[in-house]
């Protein structure tokens, strides 16, 4: 590649500003799709916050209350939650006629220490019982079960949410560099401005039932470096849009 490219060298790390700007672009597309992602500000600070989405995920557990009680609660689904489009995996469920689902709440946070985004989530049955770590492990997509069995304690564990201080599950970030580096290097070589959040989330999300539709990869680019004024305007637009669509305070 020639040296006069406007793109900086590919790095698998993300500074906090770029994180926010990338999320801003991600959220803009989400709002056009109306697929439920919001920006949650933390203690009133626009700079500190996280992306959030709540999804109904098919239940792969064979023996939890979610299967027998889900029918009673289907009304609650329609309100403002999105049913994830996992038709093909729903078909694999043992006794799937009840279409058992679990409520997953995903948070995308920035880690200052690792300089990468981290996916936190919590999961519950529709009547509000929190899932245990074992249940979350069991509900991981079959394609990722082998990896999970190799090292359960460095894949998903329960952790304190760094901003809310509540128990959440966390997808461990230790492999992030491994898959982000080749992805970003390829994009860089082709002079494609990929959005870090889109690429990263489409890799880690599906492990725990979160899909990122293909249109994100097509529609959401990287924040343009050196244009902080317009970029921060985009972020604040997204933030205010998020503020108007989401419940005010994180619970």
């Amino acid at each position: 590649m020639s040296a006069d490219t406007a793109l900086p060298a590919a790095s698998c790390y993300l500074d906090e500003e770029t994180f926010r700007l990338s999320c801003g672009l991600f959220l803009e597309h989400s709002h056009s799709l109306n697929d439920g992602w919001t920006w949650e500000m933390f203690s009133g600070s626009e700079k500190e916050g996280y992306m959030k989405k709540t999804v109904m995920v098919p239940c792969r557990l064979s023996s939890t209350p979610c299967q027998r009680r889900v029918v009673d609660d289907t009304d609650g689904l329609a309100e403002d939650e999105q049913l994830s489009d996992q038709d093909e995996s729903a078909g694999e469920l043992p006794g799937a006629e009840g279409q058992a689902v679990l409520r997953y709440e995903y948070h995308v946070l920035y880690s200052c220490s690792y300089q990468i985004p981290i996916l936190y989530f919590r999961a519950s049955t529709l009547e509000g019982r929190s899932l245990s770590l074992e249940e979350v492990w069991k509900n991981v997509h079959p394609n990722y079960q082998q990896r999970l069995r190799q090292g359960p304690w460095d894949t998903i564990t329960q952790q304190e949410h760094p901003l809310l201080g509540q128990p959440f599950f966390m997808l461990h970030p230790c492999k992030t560099e491994e898959f982000m580096r080749p992805a970003l290097e390829t994009a860089h070589a082709k002079r494609m401005g990929v959005n870090y959040i889109v690429t990263w989330l489409s890799v880690v999300g599906p492990v725990v039932g979160l899909d990122v539709p293909l249109s994100y990869a097509l529609a959401v680019g990287a924040p343009v470096p050196g244009t902080s004024a317009s970029a921060s305007a985009a972020a604040s637009t997204a933030a205010s849009a998020a503020a108007s669509t989401s419940a005010s305070a994180p619970d």
């Binding site: 220490s113 690792y114 304690w153 564990t157 329960q158 509540q166």
Partner: peptide, 28 residues
């Protein structure tokens, strides 16, 4: 208190937590 405390069924949970803190510190 599910909303306040992490579960700790075995010592492996503590070990994993401790090691991930060590790892985070060494990253910095």
């Amino acid at each position: 208190p599910e909303r306040d405390l992490l579960h700790c069924p075995t010592n492996s949970v503590i070990e994993a937590h401790f090691m991930s803190s060590i790892k985070e510190a060494d990253t910095l």
